[in-house]
């Protein structure tokens, strides 16, 4: 493991142009080097396509939250009204139409909670520690492609990024 850590080197290629970055991603995937991550200041569809990213599964969290929320709201309204089993304004004790409104609002609320939980878990956003191999430029105007190679291949990988129109930074 130690040997691996010593030999594996991280290098980031920076691209101002989205098209160049997408092209570099495609070419890098076909090269012997390993593409670790891509950082960018905004979500680029071209880069997502080049990375071959699939649709996020966050929707399942949202759906689960929504279904739970609907029943939670509806059951709460039913439970509250049967505590006083009394007809008010001629409406049945368990009135479906008004309770549906409570259910609806809870659906949205819990679907959003599910959405947030999904986003935090899937994106691993709970850790405020920034990875060492990150560059501030990636939240500004550059797309950063982080790749690894062996120590001996550093120069050729740097040349690869430069040939695609990028700049480079080697992480020690």
């Amino acid at each position: 493991m130690n040997i691996n850590m010593n030999t594996e080197k991280y290098i980031m290629g920076f691209f101002r142009d989205e098209d160049q970055a997408a092209q570099a991603v495609t070419d890098l995937k076909e090269s012997p080097y390993t593409l670790k991550r891509v950082h960018g200041p905004f979500p680029s569809h071209k880069i997502s396509r080049a990375l071959g990213q699939k649709k996020s599964k966050i929707g399942y969290f949202t759906l689960a939250g929504g279904i739970f929320g609907f029943f939670a709201g509806f059951v709460l309204a039913v439970y509250a009204s049967i505590q006083w089993n009394l007809m008010v304004s001629g409406k049945p004790v368990i009135s479906y139409v008004p309770f549906f409104i409570v259910g609806f609002e809870f659906t949205i609320l819990f679907a959003v909670f599910g959405n947030i939980i999904g986003m935090l878990l899937l994106s691993r956003l709970t850790n405020t520690k920034i990875p060492v191999q990150y560059d501030d430029r990636c939240s500004g105007e550059y797309f950063g492609l982080l790749a690894t190679c062996s120590r001996g291949e550093l120069d050729t990988l740097a040349d690869f990024f430069k040939s695609k129109g990028g700049e480079t930074r080697i992480f020690e």
Partner: peptide, 22 residues
Amino acid sequence: ISIGWTGDFEQWRHYTRGFLFF
């Protein structure tokens, strides 16, 4: 308050979908 956001495309993948649901 930025809870570790790095603009990683893995983050963007979930973020954009989540934002759409929002």
